[in-house]
Design a protein around this nucleic acid. Structure first.
Lengths: 153, 153
DNA sequence: AGTTACCTTGACGTGCGCGTTAACGTTGCT
DNA sequence: AGCAACGTTAACGCGCACGTCAAGGTAACT
């Protein structure tokens, strides 16, 4: 079960294609500490796991949707590590108290992100409203001043 | 009525401050054709009108909220000119038919912008949902694994 | 007339986010 | 063993969106 429909690991070529990014960009993100170094095959080729791919996608979202700088994103996604650690060390409860603290921090960060999203969406809604108003003004103008042309619709 | 509460015209210093941008940025936008050259006083100082300020704010919104490049924005706000023309030549109906066509184009552009906003907000909502899910996972983890610490709340 | 604050136009510098090229190693197939 | 496809690092380059001087003009007040 390795190539049925989802190669468990992807080389950089396919990884880049699926993520809609360039290979250069993936290496750059790794270089900047946004991606933890992926596992490599013997020859040194990078192998991206599903978790890696997930993370890459989050980076893209944060960048394209919210317009954060890579530096910002780096800080933000450090909370993602906690998630992965949860999965990984699910039972090796080395230090429950400390992990709880980490999770709390991750929770905080996530809440902040939600807050940012809400703020932004609110502003976007406001903008949407003014644009909609503008449309109405155009329409009334067209109806009042050039109704003949509208008859054709 | 020129300095009661809202100097009809602002020099670049105040303009920049009110818009939360630098003077350099305003000049840069002008240089790039995003702002039509503001009127000047005798000495050559720039004087920004209310319309100018409005436009500057739209540019900021398009940039910060939606993350467009200045080149993109330049194209997008050319529809704003139509609005101003409507106000200015409200009665000098030089060529109603042609103006109607311009307004139609402006309407189209505005509709596209609304579409973009909607798309983006949809994606942001999706992101919000996954983040909210994540919060829930954190919470259940905390309740299951470290409920003692939660008691303190 | 002098001072201070504000403005002007260049022109060069800068950080980010990659693109691109060069020189070279690896994989997999035949 | 050879070839094509894919990968590697290192280094330089680039466009965007300004920041930052430098050298000088203007406004307003005293």
């Amino acid at each position: 079960m390795d190539d049925a429909q989802g190669h468990a690991y992807l080389q950089i070529g396919e990884a880049a294609e699926r993520a809609q990014l360039t290979q250069r960009t993936l290496r750059y993100y790794e270089e900047k500490g946004l991606l933890n170094p992926p596992t490599r095959m013997d020859g040194g080729f990078r192998l991206y796991s599903a978790d890696d791919m997930e993370r890459i996608d989050r980076i893209r979202q944060l960048k394209e949707l919210l317009g954060f700088s890579l530096a910002d994103i780096k800080e933000m996604i450090e909370s993602d590590d906690v998630r992965l650690q949860i999965r990984a060390e699910w039972r090796s409860d080395a230090d429950t108290a400390e992990k709880a603290e980490q999770i709390r921090r991750a929770r905080e960060v996530t809440l902040q992100q939600i807050g940012l999203l809400d703020q932004k969406m609110q502003k976007m809604n406001a903008m949407r409203d003014t644009l909609a108003e503008r449309i109405e003004k155009y329409d009334t103008w067209l109806l009042e001043r050039a109704p003949a042309l509208e008859a054709g619709r």
